[in-house]
Write a protein that binds this DNA or RNA. Structure first.
Length: 243
DNA sequence: ATACATGTTGGAGC
DNA sequence: GGCTCCAACATGTA
């Protein structure tokens, strides 16, 4: 469920509840929320992997982390972490992180950092990267302040696509590679979105979870790299280490 | 069956 | 204070 494009799919799927009044709400979240019954959902927004249910004066943030799921007009056996029922249907969130966000979302969220947002700014992303020359490229792509919405699959596929080794440092990247990094993070995210909608995402993976490099036909390296020690697949033959 | 995974947070320890 | 490491969370899939 988690990477940015999946949250965009959720947002689109819930459009029918926009402007609708909640007739019942609940769930086993320990987060204390305002009384929701009778309130209208003003909008659904997303910032990277975060899903935002917007009300007048506050929002509920849903983050699916690793195991989160949801059902629309259906229920699983498990107790929902949060559910909202409307006259025209219901949404159930399971095993997700819930937070109450108070205040102006435009002040809290930098929309230009979200790779899926129309306000995304490649120039700002490049600027943030240039300010951190020692950062590893594998960490840079996972950095939600720079590439909000990019996750481990997109990271692996982008690095393979632009032929850059995950342990390259940002400062050592040639300008063309830095530009390609920023550009492909967005391009791949939108391709991910289309493939995911067609339930054919996995068949397009060239590096993630793969055994052999489709370019050079040598075995992929598979190591836990970067600050988060996240699973990384890469080809030491075709992905150049700039450092 | 066992291991592993599209993620983040917060605390311990240095 | 900052950095890194690690546990915790909790469930479907291979």
């Amino acid at each position: 469920m988690p990477e940015g494009p999946s949250i965009v799919i959720l947002k689109e799927a819930l459009a029918k509840f926009k402007g609708k009044k909640i007739i019942e709400a609940g769930g086993n979240t320990k987060v204390v929320l305002p009384e929701l019954e009778g309130l209208k959902v003003i909008d659904f927004k997303s910032w990277g992997k975060q899903f935002l249910i917007c009300f007048k004066g506050f929002a509920i943030r849903v983050h699916f982390l690793l195991f989160g799921t949801y059902r629309i007009d259906e229920r699983k056996d498990a107790k929902p972490r949060l559910f909202l029922r409307f006259a025209n249907g219901e949404i159930n969130f399971y095993t997700s992180s819930i937070q109450l966000i108070e205040g102006d979302l435009d002040e809290i969220y930098d929309w230009t950092a979200d790779v899926m947002n129309p306000l995304w700014s490649a120039a700002k992303a490049r600027k943030k990267l240039k300010a951190a020359p020692d950062m590893l490229v594998c960490d840079a792509l996972m950095n939600q302040q720079v590439f909000s919405g990019v996750g481990n699959i997109i990271k692996n596929e982008v690095l393979f696509r632009i032929k850059v080794h995950p342990l390259s440092t940002i400062g050592a990247l040639p300008a063309a590679k830095l530009n390609a990094l920023v550009k492909e993070a967005v391009v791949y995210s939108f391709e991910f979105l289309e493939w995911k909608k067609k339930f054919e995402l996995k068949k397009h993976w060239l590096a993630y979870n793969q055994k052999t490099c489709p370019r050079d036909h040598v075995p992929f390296k598979r190591k836990d790299l970067g600050k988060g020690r996240r699973r990384t697949f890469y080809c030491e033959s075709c992905q150049v280490n700039y450092s």
